[in-house]
Write a protein that binds this DNA or RNA. Sequence first.
DNA 1: ACCTGAACACCGTTCAAGT
DNA 2: ACCTGAACACCGTTCAAGT
Lengths: 223, 223
Amino acid sequence: MNTTAEPAPRRRAHGLNREKILDACLRLAEGSAADALSFRKIGKELGADPTALYRHFSDKDELLLALADRVLAMGLDGYQPGENWKVSLEDLLRRARACFLRYPSVATLAALRVTSQEGELEFVESMLGVLKLAGFDSADAARIHRVCADFMLAWTGFSAGLLLLGEKSTEDDKAWVRSYAKIPPGDYPLAVAAVTIMAEVQDEENFAFALELLIAGIATRLG
Amino acid sequence: MNTTAEPAPRRRAHGLNREKILDACLRLAEGSAADALSFRKIGKELGADPTALYRHFSDKDELLLALADRVLAMGLDGYQPGENWKVSLEDLLRRARACFLRYPSVATLAALRVTSQEGELEFVESMLGVLKLAGFDSADAARIHRVCADFMLAWTGFSAGLLLLGEKSTEDDKAWVRSYAKIPPGDYPLAVAAVTIMAEVQDEENFAFALELLIAGIATRLG
DNA sequence: ACCTGAACACCGTTCAAGT
DNA sequence: ACCTGAACACCGTTCAAGT
């Protein structure tokens, strides 16, 4: 049958490779769409079949780890340790947080994982360098690096989740004030009185406050 | 046609109600199965059609908020404020963390949301009471409650995520040590030297360390 | 060697139909 | 009034088939 008829248009998929795939993922992940990184959508962005990605990454997990490491490496680009260890420590943690929050759908997944790749190595080496400069011995530095890194990762995953929730998150805050206003007088007096202030707290200033307290706490460990 | 033939067996669904549904959810959510709380599985647990749940909850979000609030209320059961505000503050935060971590699939979702229901009200009221006792005025107490609560929620969501990852998480730690061992000598010397200690840090002690630093930081605010 | 596309086993949710 | 079950639009992943 129709051997000369036009076949379904098959694009040669432009020499797909890991770099091109990661670039496409970054384009899709910038912003707050929770389901931006499905294989079908990445495929569409690349003009290729979704399953073509399996030629280059063994599964979605491997793709996301590569993506997370790349994002972190981007965030550290240009970092220079300064003379004040507190400033440098805060700089590193803020850089990591900021680059992940630029790609919230990467952050939610990356927060829980160890990539063991370049970006992470840069980050860990820099963190340990700062803590050494502060005067911590290597065992304490390792321990404090973990508490700082996991604090930042946990909170950044949390914040990324809020960004991905989008409207639902701001609606929650409004519902918070609204429903506390309906509480019979005398019940939960402290909570009712405080709800407006509590609901107005912005996540970014809240993180900054926590980070300040944490770093102050670490400083007391230097004796 | 066969009007007398036996119809497909239809169980009357036992007077389904919100309480019974939440009980079933708790049974399913106890443990570390990431996909334990699908409507199909909850339906099976109840011996009812999955879509019957829509008679009692408008959507999955409403169900999860109700569930989260119930879990928190359970965790606070028996709480009594003590004389030492630091001890009480730590008690409250640990209780909330512990009850959520018993139901990791609830924790990952609950961490990001405000339920505006009973359990949350108890928690907020208790927290503000402790901070008032410590000597903070109401505006500072509101502010510090949020930093403590979000710190706990963020880290608990993080820990719940690790539990749901299960093996993948412990594999990550092993891969961490393994891959750093392969790094050419001279590259990333601090990271390579510290990786064993870093990979041995347990999440629970790490959270405890962070909480200790945070509470110490808060204490300095009392001047 | 690399890409395609149908298929599989899952999701949450909607809605007409049953009792 | 309440429950059922087929259907819809999504997932990640597998695998035989195409070029």
